[in-house]
């Protein structure tokens, strides 16, 4: 029966987290507003002539998305750690890795996906050509799950530490570099006409790698934190 590897547990955790988050909508919207504000700050800082904006657009959008997805990382485990549900999850028969996977997928649905949908809209500010918008959305669609997976490792390592949210940024940002390079690079390559397939496939490879390793690392880190 499918339950041995905990598929139903996976769905259960995702539903639970989504319902929990929906109760407090502001948690979901703050990263999006943060993303919109940060992106609009750059033209004010750099000046509004079109070609420089177009040239820097992918980088800015990607860095802003990266920061926004890191903003609410502590929401991933902190509350469950505080009220003890995390311990119950660890003790439950279902593999902790599945539970972690469920939480990360729920987290991605709440932050990564909205960012991916919002980004092309904001890219219009930067006068980005429509094909580049599509590549941007595609790169974010592949990239943001990786951000959530790596972020989960950072969040589980800094569980219950004072000053944890700043520490997460310090731990996780160096690990985001490949995603940023391939993500932003893909939009550049598409704009230049080189075609983004190389970058996107590499990004996909990083996604597969993190999708496999991250839950394992997060579970180990959670067990350490719960000891």
């Amino acid at each position: 029966m499918s339950d041995t590897i905990g598929l139903s547990v996976l769905r259960g955790v995702i539903h639970r987290d989504l319902r929990l988050a929906m109760r407090r909508k502001s948690d979901v919207l703050t990263p999006l507003f943060f993303f919109a504000i940060v992106v609009s700050l750059f033209p004010l800082g750099i000046g509004s002539e079109r070609d420089t904006l177009r040239q820097i657009a992918p980088g800015i959008l990607w860095v802003a998305a990266l920061l926004a997805s890191m903003l609410s990382l502590d929401r991933l485990f902190e509350q469950d750690y505080a009220d003890g549900t995390l311990e119950q999850m660890a003790l439950s028969p279902a593999p902790l890795g599945m539970l972690v996977l469920g939480k990360v997928v729920a987290y991605w649905l709440l932050t990564g996906l909205p960012l991916t949908l919002l980004a092309p809209l904001l890219a219009l500010q930067f006068d980005l050509a429509t094909p580049s918008l599509l590549v941007l959305a595609a790169s974010l669609a592949i990239g943001t799950p990786v951000l959530s997976f790596i972020g989960a490792i950072g969040a589980s390592l800094t569980l219950g530490l004072r000053g944890g949210s700043v520490l997460v940024a310090l731990l996780v940002l160096p690990l985001y570099v490949p995603v940023l390079i391939f993500g932003a690079g893909s939009v550049d390559a598409a704009a230049v006409g080189l075609g983004a397939t190389a970058h996107l496939s590499l990004l996909g490879a990083v996604l597969v790698l993190t999708a496999f390793f991250a839950p394992w690392a997060t579970t180990v880190a959670l067990r350490i934190a719960l000891e």
Binding site: I153, L157, L171, L175, I181, F213, A217, I224
Partner: peptide, 28 residues
């Protein structure tokens, strides 16, 4: 004890990432 173990996990995650980072920077 927890500091050691948490650091160990981070070091291992880091060491897996070093070739990726190096490759992506080379590519970039």
């Amino acid at each position: 004890r927890r500091a050691d173990k948490a650091g160990a996990v981070l070091a291992l995650v880091g060491v897996v990432n070093i070739p990726i980072i190096y490759f992506s920077v080379q590519w970039w």
